[in-house]
Design a binder for these strands. Structure first.
Lengths: 347, 347
DNA sequence: CATTTTTATGCAAACGTTTGCATGAGTCAT
DNA sequence: ATGACTCATGCAAACGTTTGCATAAAAATG
């Protein structure tokens, strides 16, 4: 039992008194090889415990059978769900996935893009940092015609394949829903405006207000990283003095949940006194009391579109089919936190 | 601007009229190269937009700078947390991580182990399937002396590096806690006994009962995959007829949360009528009403130990330091679901 | 049977690095 | 000035595949 060294196709070739090329072709089901030898080779390969060396193969034909993924963090519901699906689907297609987290740091993102390039990934899927506004670090990929797919958090004015949720519609629907429930004074808790998600949701919010002839007030919009601490502080500001809002639209569920906690702790009735809507339809919104209405972004379909785009782009090398933008629809998942309707009297 | 082809060290060498070896060494900070040329080479490399080809380097020295990770699924709290940390730390050490999900399927696990081997990863970290009892698919790695670290869900009777939580203690502490609160009839909701986690937690449960002189009843233990559906059904069984239990120890938090939902829906008071303890200290246990007591497994320290072990094993090639087993302590996070003490009267 | 076509296999170069060994130039003590 | 050393660099092989081209044998054609 040769214990030490790993078997190569050369070993197989020697054992069978064949040339390495024949062995290589046999293992790859090349049509020019007779069925008999194919069988023979494969059998021997199995017997010798041979495993192809993907590095060598990759070097030879510039195909690493690996794609890269960069997300802000894999522990948040939305990216986690997407990542899970992408990983599973890609696995089915015989591709590896190198998953990286930028931790919402621009510098890390830049570094990752470069090391992933060095690793010779065949394609890259990215959801950018909150703060990425310059996309030139992706130029290497463009230059070398390596497919890149952006999803969810995507670039503005950068010619590239984009798959995103319908954030404008999400903002609009959520706000419209609150208005429909009689809310007249709706706080909008936004992430940093450097990120497309929030600007678009904000647009939706504004337009919905306008349509209902409710004036937009700058003072009712908060821009911040959507952490628990920030959410709590925002509540403290909001509820420091009257008039209190009667609706809160939080652009992520962590924020919605935290604000709900604040309300419960301070005996502010939800949805009796203030109604809350979140964003992403994180399953946590269902187990909380009251459960929270949230905008569902259909992560599964988004993930599937991303995979489809990756595979398609990898197959058809040239940059055919000019970069397109796909928009995944969203819909509101109504729950208790926005139930009931306020009377007309208000204000 | 040469747009097409990627620059190699050969190009740099030509441009500078140096040999490729010098360029290679210069880029790798080899001591034998003069500072002057190092500078010159690096400058040119930058100018030409050179990126090292890790595949080629990896092929040459059998070092892919990549490690593999197999977990059941990356969307569950505990593995997600661990994965996140491992990924970040490894990134700091200049390693890539190929993250794979077995989806709790033994067949997938076997397949993954093989493809990861082919990808020439330098080390592998694994948390096995619920159903993995035969570990021979990992023999390839042992045979070729590639480090493997098992964590959380680990093999029994397989000589290998193991890092696990103190599941016995977890089971014991949780049960002891419930007993301390006056519970006399504690249901144990277990996962499949093919997985070490559950057998050990069960042992802890049994021993705690015994110490309190409470008889162990087989009928109070449920073995099942810990899905929401199963948890719900178990509740239906338990509460189908008296006597009802006064304590529930669920060996994961999803189950605990679901059972709490059941109780709320059926007006069974928690913790007034039945007390609940979960396992893993998933943050969801905090946002639910009432919040759920749970066993914290210190995922961060576990992840750090895994990374430390991986790095150490990768550095010191030979299988030195015979395979050890590390046990990470656990502690109970007490919350509302097990608050208050039952009177002595009971039964 | 001679020629063409088909089928199956082999040769050798190439992919981009790294590294042991060799070499030439400079430094230093004698 | 000579030999012993150090220092910086170059040569060429090697890592394990894949693949264009060549070739030998077999089959088909006239």
């Amino acid at each position: 039992m040769s214990n030490r060294s790993e078997k190569t196709i050369v070993d197989i070739a020697e054992a069978l008194e064949l040339s390495v090329s024949t062995v290589s072709r046999a293992l790859n089901n090349h049509p020019a090889i007779s069925l008999a030898t194919k069988e023979k080779v494969k059998k021997m390969a199995r017997k010798m415990g041979y495993r192809p060396n993907t590095l060598a193969a990759g070097l030879r034909n510039n195909r690493s059978k690996t794609v890269g993924l960069i997300v802000p963090r894999i522990s948040m519901f939305f990216p986690a769900t997407i990542t899970t699906i992408i990983q599973n689907k890609l696995q089915e297609h015989g591709y590896h996935l190198i998953i990286c987290q930028s931790n919402d740091s621009y510098e890390q993102e830049v570094a990752l893009v470069n090391t992933l390039y060095s690793a010779r990934i065949e394609a890259l899927a990215v959801s950018t940092t909150l703060f990425t506004t310059d996309f030139s670090h992706f130029d290497v990929f463009k230059k070398h015609q390596i497919p890149v797919v952006f999803f969810d958090r995507v670039p503005k004015d950068y010619d590239v394949k984009i798959i995103k949720g319908d954030d404008y519609a999400g903002g609009y629907k959520a706000t419209e829903h609150l208005i429909g429930k009689g809310c007249k004074d709706i706080v909008f808790v936004s992430g940093p405006l450097t990120c497309n998600l929030y600007t678009e949701r904000l647009e939706g919010y504004k337009d919905a207000l306008q349509k209902a002839k409710i004036p937009f007030k700058k003072s009712r919009v908060f821009y911040q990283e959507l952490t628990r601490e920030n959410a709590w502080q925002t509540c403290e500001k909001i509820f420091a003095q009257a008039p209190y809002p009667d609706g809160i639209f939080a652009t992520n569920d962590t924020t919605a949940i935290t604000m709900l906690e604040y309300c419960r702790k301070h005996n502010i009735a939800v949805p009796g006194q203030v109604k809350i809507v979140g964003y992403s339809n994180d399953p946590r919104t269902e187990i909380v009391t009251p459960s929270i209405t949230s905008v569902d972004q259909n992560p599964a379909t988004m993930a599937e579109r991303v995979v489809a785009a990756l595979i398609e782009m990898v197959q058809t090398k040239p940059g055919v089919g000019k970069f397109s933008q796909e928009i995944i629809p969203v819909q509101l998942a109504e729950r208790e936190s926005s139930a009931g309707t306020f009377k007309k009297k208000k204000k």
